[in-house]
Write a protein that binds this DNA or RNA. Structure first.
Length: 869
RNA sequence: GCGGGCGUGGCGGAAUGGUAGACGCGGCAGACUCAAAAUCUGUUGUCCGUAAGGACGUGGAGGUUCAAGUCCUCUCGCCCGCACCA
């Protein structure tokens, strides 16, 4: 039995595609374009099969759209800056650049072996000065436009590593690598003013109709719009135990944000964030308060800590005046649960109608004043127990608001605040500006200079790019740019006095926020040309992991708007279509002593149980996302060596719907391999000798051949529809059905029927074309075997003839009282009366009717006849 | 707590309200073989029945409908995202 020799064919076709520059594209005005993009990878090392699922999907779409005649841009590049390179440099005594370049070379070779149709002439790497120099120019433009600025912000500081840590790098309040307790520090950091576009970013989500609903919701929640009011509470009397804040005797009122201005009459306290400037000020004269604030700042910000931390507060001794009633006073507290970063860093507490406020009030024995009455409740009887009442109702105990429903009361209270000059209705957002400073080496240098006299001075454009020095040491903790003996010392471009470079580098999300634009004109002297961007953008189909649902995708949306404001392009949304693919999973294995084992270290013993190389039993764990740490990975090279790229590709596409997780199994890949060989045999040794290409079909076909032809056109129609809708697994099922139909064509029909060879040729050619986007090498090889002209990759996508695809005969289900009792065969579109009488004449039906006339008969054309006995 | 998703054979999964289980994996039986691998053929939701046939069946309970995996109400379980957001 001959086997498909993928080793020979795959490298051969890859060479031919490369030599003919098949996938290198140029903008062609007037020709419809299709920009297919998969999220560019971080070059972390070798790829495993889990890494290439989204590239396989992207390649399918790229080749499919290409066959449909689109000018398809399908580029690939490297998100090449980042922390792992520095960690590797420390661990392996290499240089981040060397390590990164090696990984890029390895991974590029692996992607090439998969036969992906990339335009490699557009390859970019974020760590290349050719790339990040443009990024520095963008930063300076943002700076000039007020979209980049320097601010003090609280950060996680690792005192051992001497660096800022991202939230993800803080584990249980400690630095993930040093184990040191992380401190909160107020540092001057560069930030991007994403909040300048908050409302736009939120509103435009509604127009992203080819994005997953889930991702749109996540972005909406992340932006977190809340309608409410800012309210001013005057402080009664002078500040105790502290000098007055400013001016002569008059103390600034406390401004709070609330969404429940309707419940202001239920206020029983105000609470300030520990980092509120009034709290900080008061702490100067109040050692108890100072100690409380210090303790709050020591508590980590990790979610686990927040969840378990109880609500605690510290009295300030201040009293605030109720905005609606000058005679009413409420105490001012500092509370650990009030965030400085949201709203105004101060709240008013209404325990009756907010669960968190209620817990606080119970703990500190503050009054609980209900002001919203549930529908039908008795105002005399209604009281708050352990749960705050947060539903709708009617206001009471609230003077001029009494009797109003909640929504109405919000409006009236807001108007009153505005009339009194004690507040205004406003909108608060969860979204905060994006801090982009990192105290890291392997990133894009921020192109500014700090001068003692001139302050912050941008690096002059003609001096860009500011390149990273290569001679750096990772022996000392902290930022190597800061330790470098010479790099940071420069003359101030303005006064020419001695000055220092900024040693922070940009967050790597900055790099990935515009790479899709660079791909449009990757060799341009500017970041990207307006012409190229206006032809290729937006990305028609973007594919990536859902883990980027908020950060990368939101930053890129922001960047596109920021670049538009700076005159770079005329576009709001970068990604017209988005698809988030599921993960590739694999069973996990552990040894008796608990170490993770690679799948190839596990063998099946004679008795059928799983053992390791030394014959010791293996503990089988749950199936989880492939990850190096759990060793449940299957190397890409090993799979391509054993089964070839096409087999791997088809498996990644066929076994699960693309948005769901896929389990990688040995039996699964072997099943695909069998199918690959069946396909190859069909094309290379067809059951009857084929006529030359283009041989016309006979006018009339025998029923079996007619059926085959119909199956082919049905498959073409179904596969096309499935690919349009990203139902790859179903498309493959359809192709397999068609394959079965070809193989099952009865032998006598083949041998004796003069029409058979031509019908078979049509079927096999269609098969090769349909397989092209999924298994491009095999499809080319089939095309060659069939004697097709040119490359399959240049063939147009087949078009189904609806007339040929329509079944001549239909099977009609016969139901009695909703249960299937029989089926009937009829020519398509037989009129209802004939079907009804045929159904009523069936013995299976007569038995259930028991001699009575049916009460009702419903005939659905070509589908079902439903009889009610 | 808030938001979202998903529950269908042994497994992955198909089903514009119209024959539930397409397609595949695995299993079982058989052919070829000295044997194995490979390949091929048949079969494969559960239960009753020799069979014809029948009953049951899409997490659970109701409902709408001639007809429900699909629509509605309630409920259970799992997964994901956000989370002291005022």
């Amino acid at each position: 039995m001959s086997r498909y020799n993928f080793r020979e064919t795959e490298t051969r076709w890859q060479r031919i595609w490369r030599e003919r520059r098949l996938f290198e594209v140029a903008a062609e005005a007037g020709r419809p374009k299709y920009y297919m993009l998969e999220m560019f990878p971080y070059p972390s090392g070798k790829l495993h099969v889990g890494h290439v699922r989204n590239y396989t999907m992207g390649d399918l779409v790229a080749r499919y759209r290409r066959a449909q005649g689109f000018n398809v841009l399908h580029p690939m590049g490297w998100d090449a800056f980042g922390l792992p390179a520095e960690n590797a440099a420390i661990a392996e005594h290499t240089h981040p650049a060397v390590w990164t370049r090696q990984n890029i070379a390895t991974m590029r070779a692996q992607l090439e072996r998969m036969g992906f149709a990339y335009d490699w002439s557009r390859e970019i790497a974020a760590c290349d000065p050719e790339y990040y120099g443009h990024e520095q120019k963008m930063f300076l433009d943002f700076l000039a436009a007020g979209l980049a600025y320097r601010r003090e912000s609280w950060v996680n500081w690792d005192p051992v590593e001497n660096t800022v840590l991202a939230n993800e790098q803080v584990v249980d309040g400690r630095g993930w690598r040093s184990g040191a307790i992380v401190e909160k520090r107020l540092l001057a950091q560069w930030a991007l003013r994403i909040t300048a576009f908050t409302e736009e970013l939120l509103e435009a989500i509604g127009g992203l109709d080819r994005w997953p609903e889930r991702v749109r919701l996540m972005q909406e929640n992340w932006i977190g719009r809340s309608e409410g009011a800012r309210v001013l509470f005057e402080i009664a009397g002078p500040l105790p135990n502290a000098p007055p804040l400013a001016g002569e005797g008059r103390v600034e009122p406390i401004e709070i944000f609330t969404t429940r201005q309707d419940t202001l009459y239920g206020a029983s306290f105000l609470a300030l964030s520990p980092n509120h400037k009034l709290a900080q000020h008061l702490a100067e004269g109040d050692s108890g308060l100072a100690a409380f604030i210090a303790e709050c700042n020591r508590m980590g910000t990790s979610e686990a800590v927040i969840e378990t931390a109880e609500k605690r507060g510290c009295m300030t001794g201040l009293e605030a005046v109720h905005p609606f009633d000058p005679n009413r006073r409420v105490p001012v507290w500092v509370a650990n649960f009030v965030l400085m970063e949201y709203g105004t860093g101060a709240i008013f507490g209404c325990p009756a109608h907010d669960q968190r406020d209620l817990e606080f009030a119970r703990k500190y024995r503050l009054p609980v004043i209900p002001v919203v009455l549930p529908p039908g409740a008795d105002p005399q009887q209604f009281a708050i127990g352990d749960e705050a009442y947060v539903e709708d109702g009617t206001l009471f105990n609230s003077a001029f608001l009494d009797g109003l429903p909640v929504a109405e009361a919000k409006r009236v209270a807001g108007e009153r605040l505005e009339a009194l000059g004690r507040g205004e209705r406003t909108i608060a957002y969860r979204l905060r500006d994006w801090g982009v400073s990192r105290q890291r080496y392997w990133g894009c240098p921020i192109p500014v200079i700090h001068c003692a006299d001139c302050g912050i001075v941008p690096v002059p454009e003609h001096e860009l790019p500011v390149t990273l020095p290569m001679d750096v040491s990772f022996d000392v903790p902290g930022n190597p740019l800061d330790h470098h003996p010479t790099w940071k010392h420069v003359d101030c471009p303005r006064c020419h006095g001695p000055a220092q470079r900024e040693t922070d580098t940009l967050d790597t999300f900055f790099d990935s926020s515009w790479y899709f634009l660079r791909f449009c004109s990757p060799h341009a002297a500017v970041a990207f040309t307006r012409e190229a961007a206006s032809y290729w953008m937006p990305v028609d189909q973007y594919i990536g992991g859902v883990e980027h649902a908020v950060l990368h995708l939101l930053y890129s949306r922001f960047f596109t708007r920021a670049l538009k404001r700076c005159g770079y392009l005329d576009l709001d949304e970068p990604f017209a279509g988005l698809f988030t693919q599921g993960m590739v999973c694999h069973q996990t294995y552990r040894s008796q002593t608990g170490e993770w084992l690679f799948p190839e270290e596990v063998e099946t013993a004679a008795a059928g149980e799983l053992v390791d190389g030394a014959g010791r039993p293996v503990i089988v764990g749950r199936t989880e996302k492939m990850s190096k740490s759990k060793k449940n990975v299957v190397g890409l090279d090993a799979i391509v060596d054993t089964y070839g790229a096409d087999t791997a590709r088809l498996y990644l596409l066929s076994d699960s719907p693309p948005e769901r997780d896929l389990e990688w199994t040995e039996t699964g890949i072997e099943g695909i391999w069998r199918y690959v060989n069946r396909l190859w045999r069909l094309a290379s040794e067809p059951p009857v000798p084929l006529p030359p290409p283009g041989t016309p079909l006979p006018a009339a076909l025998s029923p079996p051949l007619g059926a085959l032809r119909r199956a082919v056109h049905q498959a073409i129609a179904a596969v096309t529809d499935d690919l349009d809708k990203f139902r790859f697994n179903r498309a493959i099922a359809r192709i397999r059905e068609m394959t079965n139909a070809i193989e099952e064509l009865p032998e006598p029909a083949l041998r004796s029927d003069p029409g058979a060879p031509a019908v078979l040729r049509e079927a096999l050619e269609a098969l090769a074309r349909l397989l092209g986007p999924m298994m491009p090498h095999l499809a080319e090889e089939m095309w060659l075997s069939l004697g097709g002209a040119g490359l399959l990759a240049d063939q147009p996508w087949p078009v189904a003839d609806p007339a040929l695809a329509r079944d001549a005969q239909v099977t009609i289900a016969v139901q009695v009282n909703g249960k299937l009792r029989a089926t009937l065969e009829f020519p398509r579109d037989t009129e209802s009366g004939a079907i009804e009488s045929a159904a009523l004449g069936l013995p299976q039906v007569a038995r259930w009717l028991d001699g009575r006339a049916p009460r009702k008969v419903i005939v659905v054309p070509n589908r079902v006849v439903s009889i009610v006995a």
